[in-house]
Design a protein around this nucleic acid. Structure first.
Length: 414
RNA sequence: GUGGGUGUAGCUCAACGGCAGAGCACUGGACUGUGGCUCCAGGUGUUGUGGGUUCGAAACCCAUCACCCACCCCA
């Protein structure tokens, strides 16, 4: 049998038991975020193309080649969101949330879209949960956001990861650093890989995270951005690091960590794991103090992060399991389906997970009961129909007996 | 967009150019109304698709599609 249709390239179904793991992760995320004063925001999955082009950066790969952009019937150019920060910032400005007492803190979860070649840990439709905090410029806010990420990862059961932190400065000091980098690489420009020669022109900071061995050698003595920070940015960075120490959060200072989105300022951070493939960063974020203003709002500092759900779930796949049923009802004979349905309804309304046999021999139904991991199996046949009793089997303790049907629920409480 | 790899049963994978198979899973039975363990039986296949070479192709060649991995970039 050949399926007539397949999911689109890079778009995938999330089936049980994996979907159960996802649900659990999303629940844990919202619990942690709510505890820190973040409330859920739901924003559209499409925005005007311009919103992303302006915020992420016209020259970034995301904008220049990875966006799902199309014209609607009114000839408006719209784009399926490639990330969550820009839409949330847009909503913040559009609804004048800056008049509310700062900070305003939001979390979101949902699909993002980038037109890329799929590979391990990368789909065209992928999912993120993220947080955005507006109106807090203090380094405590950076620390709180990183703390939340760590709390969430801990709750999710992620152990094997590494947290990199860096500061990429602001409008004042980053251009200075950029110039220093250009000067540093100028003499060896021709030895850089072709990609880095392009980066040299477009975004020299990206040379810092090239993987080509020769480029790694060439940058060995390159200036570090953290040595070029202005006084304000340096103080901010040192405070953030100090607060992370206070919170007992372990991190690596990584001066090579540069992020691909134009709107980042000062703090950037990234969590990666060796459990993943080449795309090993499963969460990342940073400060973006200029974005709200860019969207026409008042100058508003902001900081946030996003977690890639596919990558996170990929690290935890072993934890995915179907939930175990509390009881299984096997029935056979005329008139027994009605009795089974009623018994199931009663138990379910008491909060039990109950599965029905749905026909077949008694043996096959009990086999199913076992496969569902049910502790109890109830058996209703024509004898029980006449007597008003149900037979029960404790499938774990290998005991069995008979009980009036209305007392079946009591067994499950033991 | 670039490079490499793989397409055979629901899943994991075998089969030198010579009858398409195994394990797991599934269903039934042994035990006619009682799970797990054991044994027996069942069988789903246009070998991704289209062409070519050949007496003969799952295998070789070409094309195409899909998926995987990696690069670029990113979560």
């Amino acid at each position: 049998m050949r399926a007539r249709y397949n999911a689109l390239k890079g778009f995938e179904d999330i089936l049980p038991p994996s979907s159960g793991l996802w649900k659990e992760l999303e629940d844990k995320a919202s619990r942690v975020f709510l505890s820190c004063g973040y409330n859920e925001i739901r924003v559209p999955i499409a925005e005007s193309t311009d919103l992303f082009a302006r915020s992420i950066g016209e020259t970034s790969d995301i904008v220049s080649k990875e966006m799902y952009t199309f014209m609607d019937k009114g000839c408006r150019s719209m784009t399926l969101r490639p990330e969550g920060t820009a839409p949330v910032a847009r909503a913040y400005v559009e609804h004048n949330l800056s008049i509310l007492p700062p900070p305003q803190k939001f979390y979101y979860a949902g699909p993002m879209f980038r037109y890329e070649r799929p590979q391990k840990g990368r789909q065209r439709q992928f999912h993120q949960v993220g947080v955005e905090c507006f109106g807090a410029g203090a380094p405590e806010a950076d620390a709180e956001v990183i703390y939340m990420l760590c709390r969430f990862l801990e709750a999710a059961g992620v152990r094997d990861f590494r947290l990199d932190v860096n500061s990429i400065g602001d409008d004042k000091c980053r251009p200075v650093f950029r110039q220093r980098l250009v000067e540093f690489f100028a003499p060896v420009k021709n030895e850089l890989c072709p990609d880095c020669q392009r980066r040299y022109e477009q975004n020299p900071l990206r040379i810092l995270d090239c993987k080509v061995p020769r480029c790694v050698e060439l940058r060995a003595n390159a200036p570090a951005i953290t040595d070029s920070l202005c006084d304000e940015c340096r103080a901010h960075y040192e405070n953030v690091l100090g607060f992370l120490d206070t919170l007992g959060i372990k991190y690596n200072k990584n001066p090579l960590l540069v992020r691909g989105l134009d709107y980042y300022t000062r703090t950037t951070f990234e969590a990666r794991s060796s459990l993943l493939g080449a795309q090993d960063a499963f969460a990342a974020g940073g400060r973006y103090d200029g974005l709200v203003e860019e969207f026409g709002g008042p100058s508003t500092p902001a900081v946030g992060f996003a977690v890639g759900m596919e990558r996170l779930a990929g690290m935890l796949e072993g934890n995915a399991a179907l939930p175990v049923m509390d009881a299984f009802i096997a029935y056979i004979g005329n008139g027994t389906p009605q009795r089974a349905l009623k018994l199931a309804a009663g138990l379910r309304e008491n909060g039990c997970r109950v599965e029905l046999g749905f026909g077949g021999s008694l043996k096959s139904q009990l086999r199913k009961a076992d496969k569902h991991g049910a502790r109890f199996a109830f058996i209703i046949g024509e004898e029980e129909l006449a007597s008003g009793m149900v037979k029960w089997k404790d499938l774990k303790q290998h005991t069995s007996g008979e009980t009036p049907e209305r007392d079946a629920g009591l067994l499950l409480k033991t």
